[in-house]
Structures are given as C-alpha cells and as structure tokens.
Design a protein around this nucleic acid. Structure first.
Length: 223
DNA sequence: GCGACAG
DNA sequence: ATCTTGTCGC
C-alpha cells in the first residue's frame, strides 16, 4: 500500500519533471491563422475518484462548436497547488487523442508560466501535445499585481519580482478579472488578445465555458 | 515559524 | 474540484 514516503517521492519526481518540461516551453508566437480554438477542462465524479476531461473545439472567430471529446479515467494524483497538471493532464491528452480535428490554439483552465517553476498546466499540456496553449485562470497562484480598472479590456501586469509572468485581464466590466499567461508557443500579448477574442458576454472565454459544461455535466447540455 | 496555495 | 440554500440584479 502507498506510504507517506511514496507520496513524497511522487511529489519530488513531479517537481523534477516540471523543471525538464519548462526547458521545452516556447514563448514565441508559433502558430498560423486561427481557425479552430479549443477549450479544455476537468470535472470529477464518483466522490472524486474519477476524473472527466473535456475538450471542445470552436470555430474562430465566430466561436461555434464543431468538435468535442470526453474521457473518464481513475484519479491517480492528489490535488497539490503547483502540481495540478499531474492530476488532470493524462486524461486531457486522452481526450485530445479522440478529437476529429486539430485545434490551432488551446485555452486551459489554469495557469501557464504564471507558476512557481514557470510550468503550469497550460505549459505542461502544450509541450506534451506540441500545441499552442494559453493559461486562463480564475484565481492567482503566484505573482503581484494592481487591480485593473473596471472596464472590459483593462489589464495590469502580473509580476514575480521584476519578471512579468502574465496579465490580469478584465474580460467583463463588473466581474473579477482573469489571469492570462502563455502556456506554449504563444507570447504574453498574443495570449491576452486571443482570450479577449474568445470572450463575449461572460467573464470566462467561450472555450472554457463549453469545456466546463461538458466536463461537469458529463455531456453537452442541449441548451 | 507564519502565511499562501490554479483546480 | 465538489456540495448546496439563499440572494441580488437584469
């Protein structure tokens, strides 16, 4: 049976893997015309013992859903702040394998480089899939910032010391801002532009909203 | 030693 | 993340 020591060793191995993955992350804009943009998210069932990973592909820029995939797997890793990817990415990759299309950009529910080791879930997924990815999180993990003005589109830099690791973006006037950071193959500024382009009347981008509904309901709501 | 801590 | 009643605002 698993012991405390085994747990500690898995944590240590995960952190070591993040250092390796981090070296493979590109913060340059390595993608062409955006025709398909995907959202990915995870949900849980059976008292948290099963993870549901959902990917929904939307046509860009009209954001109409054109493809999706849903995968269920046993949970194999606990939630540890900073190690979220080890809990959710395996199921997400299985879901991407089931798509009938290949998205030009992927927006993840969580951070990209705005992470203690610059290797948030968006970086992790992007490197393993070799796809451009963006981290769009609802909550801060690390970094300091001043609250951006209350108008849609307003943004203020997220800093770790003197290094900018993301943008705190107001996607909707009267709502809490989101935290945008590059995952892989995209720059800070382009990542923020894409998130804005995928956000219409709600706080979160449509990509994330579609994926979230699929992941939490276990099927695409007919409404 | 004391907080902070994506989903 | 998930659970879950009530409440506010358009």
């Amino acid at each position: 049976m698993p012991t405390i020591d085994d747990h500690d060793e898995r944590i240590a191995a995960a952190i070591a893997e993040q250092h390796a993955l981090r070296a493979r992350v590109s913060l340059r804009d390595e993608f062409g015309d955006l025709r398909l943009v995907a959202g990915v998210d995870a949900g849980f069932e059976n008292e948290g013992t099963v993870i549901r990973a959902a990917v929904v592909v939307l046509r860009f820029p009209d954001l109409a859903p054109v493809d999706y995939a849903l995968v269920r797997q046993p949970v194999t890793f606990p939630y540890v702040p900073g190690l979220l990817a080890f809990r959710e990415v395996p199921a997400m990759i299985a879901a991407f394998d089931r798509l009938h299309t290949e998205p030009d950009m992927v927006i993840c529910d969580g951070h990209g480089i705005a992470h203690p080791r610059r290797c948030g879930i968006a970086c992790h997924l992007g490197v393993l899939l070799n796809l451009p990815t963006i981290g769009c999180a609802k909550q801060r993990l690390i970094g300091r910032y001043v609250t951006p003005p209350t108008v849609r589109g307003a943004r203020s830099p997220l800093y770790d010391g003197s290094e900018q690791i993301g943008w705190v973006l107001r996607t909707r006037a009267d709502a809490q801002p989101v935290f945008v950071s590059p995952g892989h193959r995209v720059s800070l500024d382009r990542a923020t532009e894409v998130v804005m382009a995928c956000t219409t009347r709600f706080r979160l981008p449509e990509t994330t909203r579609f994926a979230h509904r699929l992941a939490s309901h276990g099927q695409l709501p007919l409404v």
